[in-house]
Design a binder for these strands. Structure first.
Lengths: 139, 139
DNA sequence: AATCGATATATGTTATATACATATATTATG
DNA sequence: CATAATATATGTATATAACATATATCGATT
């Protein structure tokens, strides 16, 4: 018979889960990559950001605009107002040469992080397999 | 001639780099996996943690002990004092059934995060390739 | 023409894991 | 016996994620 352990819908699980603390949402590289693909404005980036799947909670509008502002002030992106079209005026952002280098650095480090996760998961799998072989129940 | 852009050793790069903000150091799942492999104590976990490669700055002793204390108070690990050996008394921690389930959840979510990074990196690669084909210089 | 939702940008506030520092005590070493 | 290593523990600062709120325009509905 399967052992049942009180676990879900509990505050303590949430506290120690993946989602605890501040998540790395990869907002900066996501914005930079989207701008590498096509110059865009805050609202559009906000809509596209979930495509990467880094979060399930959706982007935070405040975070997008603040990040764009900050990236611009340090020269990683540049912007111009789009007043031509109808609708509210849009601030169209583009990635700069400096921004492309920053994105490249991010890609390198994200790849390293990915490799670390792979190492972890393989080690976990191996450990579970070893435990199963010694007859110990996993849970 | 290769264009040189002022970039490194600058404060603004650091501010927007991968290491900006609080990194996900995967301390909780790392501790849980190490304890799944073998019951251990804080100091030993501190030494083993870098094996995963999640950081290059090394673990923070404070974080290890605080995390262990917190995991224990919620029943994910349990501990007993080891007074048998020589040396300073060690608090030997083991993973509980509840802790094993928590670790399993972490593994699932880390795998999803890994997949998102892979998607991102492939999209970045594709974008660079497309830019190269249109003759635009990447940097 | 007034209400409502979507579009679009922007600022204010709080919670918290990380990051660094410090404190304590024991054992090993030179 | 002073110093380093082992071992556990607490104090504090900080960046940013997460949530909330504010402003204004435009399009659709009533």
């Amino acid at each position: 018979m399967k052992q049942k352990i009180a676990m879900n819908s509990n505050k303590d699980v949430e506290k120690h889960s993946f989602k605890c603390g501040r998540q790395k949402r990869f907002l900066i590289p996501s914005i930079l990559l989207l701008l590498l693909e096509k110059p865009s404005h805050g609202y559009e980036l906000m809509e596209k950001y979930p495509e990467f799947g880094f979060t399930d909670t959706g982007p935070d509008a405040g975070a997008i605009y603040r990040t764009l502002k900050s990236l611009k002030s340090d020269g990683f992106v540049e912007s111009k107002w789009n007043t031509g079209n109808t609708g509210a005026a849009k601030k169209i952002y583009s990635i700069t040469g400096k921004g492309k280098i920053l994105l490249k650095n991010w890609a390198k480090e994200m790849n390293e992080k990915k490799n670390s996760i792979v190492v972890f998961l393989e080690r976990y799998k191996k450990s579970n397999k070893a435990l199963a072989e010694t007859g110990k129940k996993l849970f």
